[in-house]
Each structure stands twice: as C-alpha cells, then as structure tokens.
Design a binder for these strands. Structure first.
Lengths: 285, 285
DNA sequence: CATAATATGAAATACGTGTTCCATTTCAAG
DNA sequence: CTTGAAATGGAACACGTATTTCATATTATG
C-alpha cells in the first residue's frame, strides 16, 4: 500500500512543485487534481485543515491523505509542513540570504555557537526591517536633529549602544552627553537638560532601574525623550515621546546587539544628515 | 463569567497589540505574562498549538483560553486567527515594501538610511559567515577558556565591543579586566598580565595607537593575544597568536558594528561553554 | 485577622482533526 | 461480456486539540 517511490520526499516547496509537474500525468485523476490545487493555492494548504482544503478542491479528506502517502509523506500533516516552512522562509529574507552563503557547518560545538549567533542576528535584522515604522523613525530623527544637545542614557547591556552613538555623534561635531561617564552625578548632569535638548534612553529586559529613573526624570523636565527598548511594556517606553522596539533574537538565552547596532547607527547618521540639511537651508536665509 | 469588556475584539495584530499595552496593568499576572509573550513571539502564537505555546510561556493551556476570553474572543482558536492573518498580510506587504523601496527612492531619506544600514549589516553577516575559519575560532576559544583572567583592549569605535563582552563575561563569573575604565593607568594594569592569562585586542581603521601599543606590550610579556580587526595588515594582527578579520560593510562611509557584535557574543558564550565543560571534567578527577 | 472574591493549576471533558478501513465504482484486459 | 485491479467515496476510528470544570492558592477587603 505504501507507495514509496524513491528516497525521501521534498521538504521545500520548489522541489515539491517540480515533482508534481513531473509526475502529474502518471497520477490518478483525483490526485492530479489535488496536486494542481496545491501548487496553485499553497497558502490554503498551509493554513487550512484537511476538511477545509478537501472541500475547496471538491474531494474527500481521505484523498488528501492518499495524495500525501503516494508522494512518500507520512500523511497529510507531514505534507502540510512543506507549505508552512515555505511561508516561514519567505518571511525571513535576510536569514536565507545568509544561509545560502554558508558553506559547510563543521560539527564542532564552537562553530554551532558562532553560526547560531549569526543566524540570530540575521533574524533580528529581518524582523526589524519588517516591523519598524519609518514614519516614527523620521519623526525621531527630526526631534534629535533640532536638539541643542543630545543626552544618552544607557546602562549594562545597552551601554555599548550608547557609547557607540556617542563616538559617532562626537566625530560628526554633534554635542552629546553620555550619562555614566562620571559615575554618581548623572542626575545632576541630566538636570541641566531643557526642552531645547533631547534625550535617548536605551534599556532591555531586565530594565536597569537607574536608566528608568533617569529617563523619567528628563521626561518630566520636558526634554523630548526617544527610547530604544525591547518591548512596549518597557517602563521607558511609556514616558517617551517616541519609542522603538527592537526585538533581538536570542541564541540559547543570549542576545547580541547586532540589529540594535545597525539601527542606532542609522539613527545617528540620519540625524547628522538632517542637521546638514538644516544648516544648509539656514545659510541661505 | 464571559468578560465582554466592550464591542468586538481586535482582528488585526496592531490593534491587538495596542489593547494589550493599554490593558496590561489591569490584567492578572499570568494573563499579562501571556500578553507580553504574544506580542514578543507572534509567530509562535500563529503556528503553535495551545499545548506548545503554553509550555513555552510556562503556563497552563487553560490560561490561554482564559486570556482569550478575557479579551473578548470566543477562545484560543479565535485569538490565533489574529496572528495568522498578520502573517498572511505581512507576506504580501513585505514584498511590495521591497519593491517600493527600490522604485520610489524618494520615500524620505530617513527610511533609505535605515534600510541601507540594515542591508549593510546583513551583508556583513553573510560575508563573515563565509570567510570565518571555524578551526581558528575554536582555537581562540580554547586559549580564552583556560585563561586565568581575560584582558580586554579596545578604544574608540571598537570600545562598545569590549564593553559588551565585559558585561557578558562578568555576568557569567569570568574574570575580566577592561582597559580604559580608569584612564591613564592602562599600561600599569596590563603590566600585571602573565602567560597564564589572555588578552583580546580590538581595533579597526584608523587603528588607535593606544590599542596597538597596549597589544604589543602584552604580547611581548608572553600573554596569549587574540585580535579582532578589519584587515590582515592591521598592526595588532601581526603580534597576535590568533586574529579574526571582520569586514563590516559600510553605508555611505559609515560602518556599524552589527556583525562584530554577533561575533563577539558568540566568542564570549563559546568561551563560557568551554569553561563549563572544563570545570565539569575537572570535578570528575 | 477573617472573609470574600478572584486568580491559578491540574485533571476531565467535548470536540475536531487526520487517518484508516471497507464497500462501491471505474476502468482496462482477456 | 467477464473478470480483475485500481481508484474513489464515505463512514468509522483513534488521537490530539481546545475547552471546561473544580479544587486550591492568592490577593483584596472590611
């Protein structure tokens, strides 16, 4: 009964499609009908149930199972995975861009860890590029571009982001103050900020209480606050004028700052560009 | 029992998300936990089953149903549709977003900059994954794993990498010394390093003379030195036991640290893992 | 501190799912 | 036309699912 034609059945949609096209004429009428529908409506296959799909095609549910088995799959559920994985892959374009490049992952634990973090980074980038709101990004840039001085608030895991932005801002001649440089007097330093300045707060779970405190402080003082965090529930998000969520994927519980770094650099450069345009138009007046 | 708060529950993810954010504080602890997870891992919600999702969150399946009902949905299945439709929409919108980006480059300079940096980061990750030598990576890990204390040397653009590694190493109980914390006395601090320790130097063009100087110093003292840099001609590469080249792609002249961050985190975690294995085998003796 | 109201966990339940089985039909070969 | 094999439809099955129920724990309230 088990009509296992040869080796293992395709796991990706492209090969599945090729197989159906090749074998279509040798398949029984009903099964060919199913195959044609599968290629035409892959999404229906991925999300629907055996009942809903079979009704859409106009066949019995059992026909779907037969179809799957004829092709070498364990059953309809097994076949459905092909269509689901297709959707997942389509969504992470960065990820398979990189996966396509990688040659052979040698077995060693070390290389697995490395590959794991590279994958996570690619995934984070893909997610970010999908979810980020360019309008809000532009708004944030506008706020920062007209600020007299930019205050950077970050501790612990987020600190590298702040120090990186501080370096680039400074290199481009934009006035910044990096909280945390001189320990202990941050509240006093940030106390000098006014509504003509702006602040960037960065914090990820578990949120540093100092960062939260400082962020609330400047927000209460009327300083436009922009936050970079990992969740809408973040305490610094609620007191911010604008906030950005960057969900870094983790590998075995650890998160790198890859996507955040790219985002922060983009923010920094965009602000610098906007300032250049501003001063150019000011010169004309 | 049916807690129908008001009108119909959201059918699209954005509104759902807003609702959770708004009502989070008025929700019971467990339900808030579910809500947070739902927003963070929408894909898991879309594809998983009640059992798998509840296990991932660490709650009972019944909690998911309660969560859905509290929010006004008929049940968990009903709620799941919100996440499924999100995926369907995303797939179409993502494709025409790429197209839109390519066609109307006019779409605000800001979004172009952001996309540019994200693309550059993805490119850097891909290049890194292709060029990195996993054998050398494993060797580097081995050296660092048996070091008494790890000295981190980095300045300027590379400093965020060092501070990020320092944070993670410290969190995992690995002894580290971050050069640059107390300005001016780095040579004296690094003078204490011996061949039982190890050092990581990081520097990119234009190479900070301090970093180069400190790296040479520890190398001469017999301390195993591992470098992360952007060229084989880097002055810190030649005095290193092992060195890694990470070529970050630039966008309009600016480079972020995305790929480097992923690499450094991988290195850090790999070292911690190796140490765990070491101490485990030591305990057996 | 006592008491009620609510929230939670764990097992029992009802339901829908994919799957299998078998009777019936279709088709081809003798 | 007969006979056999393959294909199909439809109902029965077993399994996993979401859901409900109820006892227990937790939190709020007087």
């Amino acid at each position: 009964m088990t009509d296992q034609n040869f080796d293992t059945p395709p796991t990706d949609f492209e090969h599945f499609r090729d197989m159906i096209v090749a074998r279509k004429d040798s398949l029984p009428k009903r099964l060919a009908q199913v195959g044609e529908y599968a290629i035409r409506n892959p999404d229906e296959f991925a999300f629907g149930t055996a009942a809903s799909v079979s009704e859409a095609i106009g066949v019995q549910p059992s026909t779907l199972v037969r179809f799957a088995k004829q092709l070498g799959y364990a059953g309809f559920s097994d076949l459905k995975d092909v269509f689901r994985s297709r959707i997942k892959e389509q969504r992470t374009s960065y990820q398979d861009r990189i996966r396509a490049l990688q040659v052979d992952t040698a077995g060693s634990a070390e290389s697995e860890i490395l590959q794991g973090f590279l994958d996570a980074a690619a995934g984070s980038l893909g997610a970010l590029s999908r979810t980020v709101d360019v309008t809000r990004f532009a708004e944030g840039v506008a706020i920062l571009a007209k600020a007299d001085c930019i205050y950077l608030i970050a501790r612990r895991r987020a600190y590298p982001l702040a120090s990186s932005m501080a370096y680039t801002f400074a290199k481009m001649g934009i006035r910044i103050v990096l909280a945390g440089s001189a320990p202990g007097i941050d509240p006093e330093i940030l106390g000098g900020a006014t509504d003509r300045d702006a602040a960037i707060a960065m914090s990820f779970t578990p949120y540093s209480s100092e960062t939260v405190h400082l962020a609330r402080m400047v927000a209460r003082a009327g300083v436009p606050l922009i936050s970079i965090t990992d969740s809408p529930f973040s305490p610094i998000a609620e007191c911010s004028r604008i906030w950005f969520e960057i969900a870094e994927q983790d590998f075995s519980g650890f998160r790198s700052l890859s996507a955040s770094m790219a985002f922060c650099m983009a923010l920094t450069v965009a602000v610098a560009e906007a300032r250049k345009r501003q001063s150019a138009s000011n010169d004309l007046e």
